[in-house]
């Protein structure tokens, strides 16, 4: 028996919004430590890794490890049926071929359940090595989203250059060129507004704007985003989900021929 309850459906809607543009389907691996999903996008350029810890749920029970392959478009249809303040419970029997989403209104007067067929997905699992990154940038997630949106107008690719002075995002194309420089903030009213840079070595890398823009769909999950970079390895874009876990996107760089 698997059962996981979240007080608010909003968080699950936001998580789905953060992955459904990149993935058509995904396997949710459930164990007593929580729920994990790892999947590459269709073109195998990026990897999504979602971790939701069991202690972040209002209720969590997982008697046996189960892997639930879900069509994310179908899941989105179901989650549209939940109000933001509904409690959501995800339930499945051991070895079941369906999963049930139950939504309860705050006054418990409306209860709906939606059963969805599970899929057998033959997905490759990738081992992600522990890496000490040369540069780790933390910045407001909305600022990162804004920069990705703005620079995507100029080119398919964006250069991210990180030094101890700051981080620079650049794009150039037929229209012209764009550069956005962010310096580390000295003092801020709110922690969420801070830009911080931990640098061992300066790094310059090139990435596809399309994927960076897809990652920023996770912005509603967290006020801050963390970018981890080292030369010639995938960028990690991480959004922490308060008290519940995180979503990490790995993006392969573009390299010189």
């Amino acid at each position: 028996m698997f059962e996981a309850r979240l007080i608010s459906a909003t968080i699950l809607k936001k998580i789905l919004d953060a992955i459904k543009d990149l993935l058509n389907e995904g396997t949710f691996d459930c164990s007593d430590s929580g729920i994990q999903l790892q999947a590459m996008d269709n073109s195998h350029v990026s990897l999504v890794s979602l971790t939701l810890r069991s202690d972040g749920f209002d209720k969590f029970r997982c008697d046996r490890n189960i892997s639930m392959g879900m069509n994310l478009g179908s899941m989105a249809k179901i989650l549209k049926c939940a109000n933001n303040d509904d409690t959501v419970t995800i339930k499945a029997q051991d070895n079941a071929d369906t999963v049930t989403f139950m939504f309860e209104s705050p006054n418990h007067e409306k209860v709906s359940d939606y059963e969805m067929k599970l899929m057998n997905l033959d997905q490759e699992h990738l081992g992600i090595p522990e890496t000490d990154y040369s540069c780790v940038v933390r910045m407001p997630s909305m600022e990162f989203a804004r920069i990705c949106r703005d620079l995507a107008q100029f080119s398919e690719s964006m250069l991210i250059c990180c030094t101890k002075e700051g981080v620079k995002f650049s794009a150039s194309g037929d229209v012209g060129s764009a550069n956005v420089k962010l310096a580390q903030t000295s003092s801020v009213d709110k922690e969420e507004e801070a830009v911080s840079i931990e640098m061992q070595e300066p790094v310059t890398l090139t990435f596809a704007c399309r994927y960076l823009n897809a990652f920023t769909k996770a912005s509603p999950l967290s006020g801050q985003v963390q970018l981890s970079m080292s030369a010639d390895v995938p960028l990690v874009v991480e959004y922490r989900i308060q008290d519940l876990g995180h979503i990490r996107y790995y993006l392969a760089p573009k390299i010189e021929d």
């Binding site: 490759e124 690719s157 993006l251 390299i255």
Partner: peptide
């Protein structure tokens, strides 16, 4: 000219 790499070039298949 820069070429887009695949994420599979960096992580081993488990």
């Amino acid at each position: 000219k820069r070429t887009q790499q695949s994420i599979r070039n960096y992580f081993n298949v488990k």
